[in-house]
Amino acid sequence: MSDQKAAEFVEADGLATVRLNSPALTREVKEELLGALRLAAESTTARAVLLLGSEKAFCVGQDLAEHARILDEEPEQALTTVREHYNPIVQTFESIQVPVVVGIGGACVGAGLGFALAGDVRVAARRAKFGTAFTGIGLASDSGLAVRLVRALGSARAMEMMLLGTTIAAERAHELGLVTEVVDDDAWEQRARELASVLAAGPTSAFVAAKREVRSASEGGRDLPELLEEEADLQNQLGVTGDHVGAVKSFLNKEKPAFSGS
């Protein structure tokens, strides 16, 4: 029997990699994924995070065989997993301040789509498929999927995917803005790792600030003067960093800047 973990965490050269080895989310898989994500979120040396699925599927959501067994044996426990696992997983994603790149090698459905949309940059294999799946089994969505779909697609497209259970191909997902880039089936992991490595070698504080600004702008309920004030505060903070000062000098010297993350 393989001793491979359902979710693994590795960090090297400023890049924290979380790999989901099992596409169906059993209780064990969810607990290991949550643990791996917490390691990434709590790292003081990671300058970017890379989330990968298995070769043929990124994540297909809840393991329905396990769910059916719990419905039969312990019905009162069947849906506690939303608060016990899915919500903490998504909240941990949200707590990661550095850039998160997601590599999608195949099916990305249900909670898997929610997890993928919690990242900042998504690279998909051409064979990948994307769908919501929840209404097809008589459930509302979890994993923050509805809000992230609305942010990515707008309410009309999000409603279409949620109500009709539409499954879309990678190229269409790219056209709609669900994924950043589509590559050949044998290149998705390499390309995702390349992008994550570039981000891990970049101006980390500036990336953290950029994520904060985009989140603030997308959440709604904040007026322009408040957002402008946040921009001014962030500029003041970043203006004294080594990365900014060094990059300005490099620009003036017609050199490529080297970022330390400071």
Rank of each mutant, 00 (worst) to 15 (best):
D3V: 10
D3M: 10
Q4P: 00
Q4C: 10
A6C: 05
A7H: 00
R19S: 07
N21C: 13
S22M: 12
E28R: 07
K30Q: 13
G35M: 13
A36H: 07
A40T: 05
E42D: 10
A46T: 01
K56Q: 07
A57D: 10
F58N: 12
D63E: 13
A65G: 02
A68F: 11
D72T: 12
D72S: 08
E73L: 07
E74W: 13
A78Q: 08
L79E: 14
L79Q: 09
T80A: 12
R83T: 15
R83I: 15
E84T: 10
N87D: 03
F93A: 05
F93C: 09
Q97W: 04
P99E: 01
I104R: 02
G106F: 07
C108L: 01
G110W: 02
G110Q: 03
L113S: 11
R122P: 08
R122Y: 02
V123G: 08
F130N: 07
T132D: 11
A140E: 04
D142L: 00
G144K: 00
G144C: 02
G144Y: 02
L145P: 04
V147H: 01
L149K: 06
V150N: 04
V150W: 00
L153N: 12
L153W: 01
A156T: 13
A158N: 06
E160K: 08
E160I: 11
M162D: 02
L164M: 04
G165Y: 11
R172V: 14
H174E: 15
L176T: 11
L178S: 14
V179T: 15
V179N: 12
V182K: 03
V182T: 11
D184L: 13
D185F: 12
D186A: 15
D186F: 14
E189D: 15
R191N: 11
A192W: 06
A196D: 04
A196K: 00
V198A: 13
A200Q: 10
V208W: 08
L224G: 11
L224P: 08
P225I: 09
P225T: 06
L227G: 09
L228P: 01
E231R: 09
D233S: 09
Q235H: 14
G239E: 00
T241G: 02
G242I: 07
D243I: 12
V248E: 03
V248Y: 00
K249A: 15
F251N: 04
L252C: 06
N253V: 04
E255Y: 01
P257E: 07
A258L: 14
F259A: 01
S260T: 13
G261A: 05
